[in-house]
Design a protein around this nucleic acid. Structure first.
Lengths: 202, 202
DNA sequence: CACGTTCCGTACCGATCGGTACTGAACTAA
DNA sequence: TTAGTTCAGTACCGATCGGTACGGAACGTG
């Protein structure tokens, strides 16, 4: 394994693909999949259509890659929250992370995983399903974390890990909708704090 | 005032405008504002483009009228909830109504007021703002109802009516997102019930 | 009947949609 | 230098977008 990139022949790429993807993510985040035209996207990315297609495939693949970047960037709080030592701290970190990510100055308000595509025509159906799967994957990770907490005695033995997981995801989604609609960070922070009052006490 | 409709001269309308608006509402609900093309809409409404423009103005006005119909139909639970005698019962009726409306067989999953337009390009920006204003109006009505409950001693004097109102709206929005993503009625019912555990006890 | 008014249906408008063919330009290897 | 390969940019593709012009059809009124 001396050369992970086999043979860099031909004309080199004239732009930073990582930076371009970051811009594309921002456009999808702000305008949604259907609302983001190739003109909008390539304009923000600073490249031509042909360069975009050569580097990312097509609009749908660009969207999927933008979502991956989103998951590792603005939504990285999910993975961090899951590594908290107790279920209660997981819940708190998850919702507080959601508050921060959906109300960060300089970034679009809301969550790409929600407003990227929620209801769509035929053209945006695949993007919609991609996001639904992504959110469901988040529920699954939370559920498994909480099931472990039940097994370890961190949560009461009667606690429903699946219900707790979906509850947190739903509140997070609601925070995202509120933020997208103009609610302030203080507004959604109060929502998160109030939602945590429902957390099971042992 | 003998004739509220002054002079019904000319060729009479060949379709039921009310039924047509109902179909349009369903299409916007399922596909969102940008995802619903005029071909989709008029096809479902069973009328031609010219008839739609004559009866409803244009796509944006059709959307606003569909939202009005939604508010008086599937979302009528909001007004009913506000008339409940105690704040706690308002909250319960509001979230349970949200559960029912977002997971009704035969209707699109989710809430038109959320997935109708959350993030949009220039074309859908007005629809998006219309929905944000509509949701904010819901928060206002809840807040005023809860402020009254505080004044009457129904809620503790320290309760923050605005925070309670936004909390309920956020949870409702989250339920809508989850339902749109495929969560079952039982799933979102559990979310609602758990969210109500956070309600202030006197 | 003829007349004015309104509605319906077709056929079309310019603009924009996502996507691509093609021509050079810029690089490495021989 | 030459050949081979990849990228950039223009100019364009057919399809679809929201919206409309226009002519005929269906009504109430003289």
């Amino acid at each position: 394994m001396t050369a992970p990139h086999p043979a860099p022949t031909g004309r080199p790429r004239g732009f930073d693909a990582d930076a371009a993807l970051e811009r594309a993510m921002q456009v999808f985040w702000a305008q949604g999949y259907e609302g983001a035209s190739l003109t909008d996207l390539t304009g923000a990315m600073g490249i031509t259509r042909t360069s975009m297609y050569a580097a990312f495939g097509n609009k749908e693949e660009l969207f999927r890659k933008a979502l991956e970047r989103y998951a590792e960037g603005p939504a990285s709080y999910v993975g961090r929250a899951l590594r908290e030592p107790t279920a209660a701290r997981v819940a708190t970190a998850f919702l507080h992370g959601s508050v921060r990510a959906t109300s960060t100055p300089g970034c679009p308000a809301g969550c790409l995983g929600v407003q990227g595509s929620l209801a769509a025509g035929v053209a945006g159906r695949e993007a919609r399903d991609t996001l639904a799967t992504w959110r469901e994957e988040g529920v699954r990770r939370l559920r498994e974390r909480f099931q472990r907490a039940v097994d370890e005695g961190d949560l009461p033995s009667g606690a429903d890990a699946g219900a707790l997981a979906r509850y947190l995801m739903a509140v997070s989604n609601g925070i995202a909708v509120q933020a997208a609609g103009g609610a302030t960070r203080d507004d959604v922070q109060r929502v998160a704090d109030m939602a945590l009052l429902a957390w099971p006490q042992d």
